[in-house]
Design a binder for these strands. Structure first.
Lengths: 232, 232
DNA sequence: ACCTGAACACCGTTCAAGT
DNA sequence: ACCTGAACACCGTTCAAGT
C-alpha cells in the first residue's frame, strides 16, 4: 500500500540487519528507546516480525553487545602490537585506549555489557588478546590472571563513574550546588573543590577530564602490575 | 475485612517503611522483582498508595541507594581510622573492605548505584571520608582528586566483573565448555586455564576467588597511588 | 490526609491467521 | 518461510472517588 514500506521490505530482515538497527537506535536515542516495537518501526516492520530472527529481547541485547565487541576487536586488530620492541605497557595502553575510542561511540554499551551473563565469542577473543600482551610481556599465567581481574572493565576502555551523570555540565552544576549547601559537613570535599582549580584555558568545561582520569587510573594499574611482574 | 490487612495497616506507610521494604524485597528476590505493584503487595497495600510517600519509581531507586550507602557509612564510622599510626593505605584498605562487606549483602546495589545520576548526601559523605583518609595520608588535593577517579567504584567495595555471571558455578562451567570448544582460536586463554590450577583444597569452588581478586586489584591501585604521592 | 479502583499508555510475548 | 493483527500478562502512572 504505502510505497515506503515496500522499499524497506525489499531487503529482507535478518539477524544482522536487526542488530545493526538496534545499535543505531541505541546510539541515536539511548538504550531505553530500544524496545521491540520501536526497533520494528525503525525497520519498517511489525514488532512480531523480529521474533523470526531473534528469540527474544534478551538475545537482541546479547547481539548488540557482540556487535560492539566485534567493532572493538576490528579496531585493536589494526594495531600491530610489537610488545618486544615497545614493551607490554605501551602495547596494552594503546590497545585499551583504542577499545575506549570504540566504546565512547556507544555510551550505552557499558550498561549492556555488564548485564550480559553469557560470555560471547568476541569478548573471549578480546580478553585473549589482552592476555596475549601480558604473556608476551613476561607475565606468568598466574599473575596475568590476577592482572585481568585488576583491570576489569578498564581493559575494555571504560569505568563506571559514580560521580558523573550523563549530562556532565548539568550534573556538575548540580553537584556544586549541593556541595555548597553542605560544605561545612564535608570539609575534605569542600577543601578539594576550592583547591583544584578550573583552568579557564582548559578546553574541558567541567573540572574532571574523563580521558585524563581514565589514563591516570590505567597507568596506576599498569605500573603496579609491572612492579609485581618484576618482583616475580 | 481480612484481619491481616488491618494488622499491616496499623503502622502507617512512610517513605522510610517503603524504602526498607524495597531493600528487603530486592535482597530476597532480586532487583527485577522490585515493581510498584509487588512492593505494595509486600506492604499490604495498593500500588497507588506508594505515590503518597514517594513521587515515582525513580525516587524509590534513589531511596534504596541512599539506604545502602547509609549502611556503608554506619559501618565505616565504626572504624576508628588512625591514619597517623597505621598509614593511609591500611586505613583505606580497611575502609574499602568494610564497605564491600555491606555491598555484598545487597548484590543488586552496584547496578542501582551506577544508574543514579544525582549524588545523594550519603554518597557525598562516603567519598568525603575517603578523601579525608587520602589528605591525612599526605596527598595533595590534586593527587587525591585523581586518586578518587582511579579508585572509582572500588572505593565502595565493588567492581563490575565482565566475566562472572550471577551463578558462578553454572557460569564457569559454561565458560569452560565454550572455551574448550574453541581452545585453538584462543591460545592464551586456553593456556592460562590449563596452567592456573584448581586447588582441590581451596574452599572456593570456581577458579577465581572474588575477594582475593578484589583485594589484589585494590592493593595494586593503593601501591601505585602511594608511589605517586611519594614522587610528589 | 491517606488509601483505593478503574483506566491509560506503554512493555515483551503468544497465537492463530494471513501471504 | 516470513510477516501480521489481535490479544495477554505485565509495567509505571493519572485521575476521580472513597474514608
Amino acid at each position: 500500500m504505502a510505497p515506503r514500506r515496500d522499499v524497506a521490505r525489499r531487503t529482507p530482515l535478518s539477524r544482522e540487519r536487526v542488530l545493526e538497527a538496534a545499535v543505531g537506535l541505541a546510539d541515536r536515542e539511548g538504550i531505553e528507546a530500544l524496545t521491540m516495537r520501536r526497533l520494528a518501526q525503525e525497520l519498517g516492520v511489525e514488532a512480531m516480525s523480529l521474533y523470526h530472527h531473534v528469540p527474544n529481547k534478551e538475545a537482541i541485547l546479547d547481539g548488540v553487545a557482540e556487535v560492539v565487541l566485534t567493532q572493538v576487536n576490528d579496531a585493536v586488530d589494526q594495531l600491530d602490537a610489537q610488545v618486544a620492541q615497545e614493551g607490554w605497557q605501551a602495547a596494552m595502553r594503546r590497545r585499551v585506549l583504542t577499545a575506549r575510542e570504540v566504546m565512547l561511540r556507544h555510551p550505552w554499551a557499558p550498561q549492556v555489557l555488564e548485564t550480559r551473563t553469557t560470555m560471547s565469542l568476541p569478548v573471549i577473543g578480546y580478553f585473549d588478546g589482552v592476555l596475549g600482551v601480558l604473556l608476551a610481556g613476561g607475565f606468568s599465567y598466574d599473575l596475568a590472571h590476577h592482572a585481568l581481574h585488576a583491570l576489569g572493565s578498564r581493559a575494555l576502555g571504560f569505568t563506571q563513574e559514580l560521580f558523573e551523570p550523563d549530562d556532565h555540565e548539568v550534573g556538575e552544576a548540580e553537584a556544586m550546588a549541593v556541595l555548597e549547601q553542605v560544605a561545612d559537613r564535608f570539609p575534605s570535599l569542600a577543601g578539594m573543590m576550592a583547591a583544584v582549580s578550573h583552568d579557564p584555558a582548559d578546553p574541558t568545561l567541567g573540572w574532571c577530564d574523563d580521558q585524563r582520569e581514565f589514563e591516570f587510573g590505567l597507568d596506576v594499574i599498569l605500573d603496579g602490575l609491572e612492579r609485581r611482574r618484576r618482583a616475580g
